[in-house]
């Protein structure tokens, strides 16, 4: 949309590019902030984190054998990428996570909305889902390996077990939470239930849904490491686990750090995309 001249006076939100860092707003109770101020805070938080870490090792609070210096971890990471072909493991883990995640999403979204739309569907599916989602996924791993072997399908199965049942309930809740008036408006504009679902319910719940998908994607990273530790010859989890055998703490931490960075980056990408798509929020 082109910036029309009248919009300036109406839209009161601060432009994120404002150079003013607005510290007063950051400190005020429920105050406002700017993107640059938030970024600065985030950078400070990370610097502080590494500083504390460094101090803990430097003062010998934790022996270096158990907690290496941050720069040793970075060096280990560099070495893993340079000589151990770590990038391949990273790629494999990302592929597994996204494959399973997408499978969960394309199943959970329609089923969840369906559950929210018809009481009968909700009444049938909800108790079962509620039961299964309380089963501890790690306890299911042996069973899933017996069923699916140690190939890719067992990893997908673990991730799917760990996310689908939670997600489907979250989606059902999202779809139920949209105002009843929206549905009734749909009817009085002549829409059929399927059209209301597509054009009103789905559109209305989308921002909440994306938030729930972000959370779920985070869980996927927990389950993939579990799955790769237990039964895999590749992936970040496998690398972390095999380094344990040689007590290579820097490499283990490098692996963990990699997961954190991937999580942070993908989450930020989704948030930026969401902000683009949901410009009205």
């Amino acid at each position: 949309m082109s910036e029309n001249p009248t919009s300036g006076s109406q839209v009161s939100t601060d432009s994120p590019r404002k150079s003013n860092l607005n510290f007063r707003g950051l400190l005020a109770y429920r105050g406002t902030s700017t993107a640059s101020a938030e970024l600065l805070m985030a950078v400070c938080a990370f610097c502080g984190f590494f500083l504390v870490w460094y101090a803990i090792v430097a003062f010998g609070i934790v022996p270096e054998r158990f907690l290496p210096f941050p720069d040793a971890v970075v060096k280990a990471l560099w070495g893993m990428f340079a000589t151990n072909n770590f990038i391949e493991d990273v790629g494999i883990s990302i592929t597994r996570v996204w494959g399973a995640f997408i499978l969960s999403v394309i199943m959970a979204v329609p089923i969840g909305i369906w559950m929210g739309s018809y009481r009968v569907v909700g009444a049938i599916i909800e108790p079962i889902v509620d039961f299964i989602r309380y089963l501890p996924v790690p306890a299911l791993v042996p069973l899933l390996i017996i069923w699916f072997g140690i190939g890719e399908s067992s990893k997908v199965a673990v991730l799917w077990m760990g996310t689908f049942f939670q997600l489907v309930l979250l989606i059902a809740d999202d779809s139920k939470r949209i105002p009843r008036e929206y549905i009734e408006i749909g009817y009085t504009l002549g829409a059929r239930p399927s059209q209301i679902t597509k054009d009103i319910v789905f559109r209305s719940m989308m921002p909440n849904m994306v938030d729930n998908l972000r959370i779920t994607l985070g869980w996927c990273w927990t389950w993939i490491i579990v799955a790769e530790i237990v039964a895999s010859k590749s992936g970040i989890g496998h690398v972390i686990w095999s380094m344990r055998r040689f007590l290579k703490t820097p490499e283990i931490m490098a692996g963990i750090l990699t997961v954190g960075v991937i999580g942070l980056v993908s989450d930020q990408i989704i948030r930026i995309l969401a902000r683009r798509i949901f410009r009205y929020l």
């Binding site: 105002p179 008036e181 929206y182 009734e184 408006i185 009817y187 009085t188 504009l189 002549g190 009103i200 559109r203 209305s204 989308m206 949901f278 009205y280 929020l281």
Partner: peptide, 20 residues
Amino acid sequence: TGPDRHKGMVFQAYTSFPWL
């Protein structure tokens, strides 16, 4: 017998869609 577009409704709550 049921709602349709011949009977238009306006509610007290704001029902215009925020995504549009």
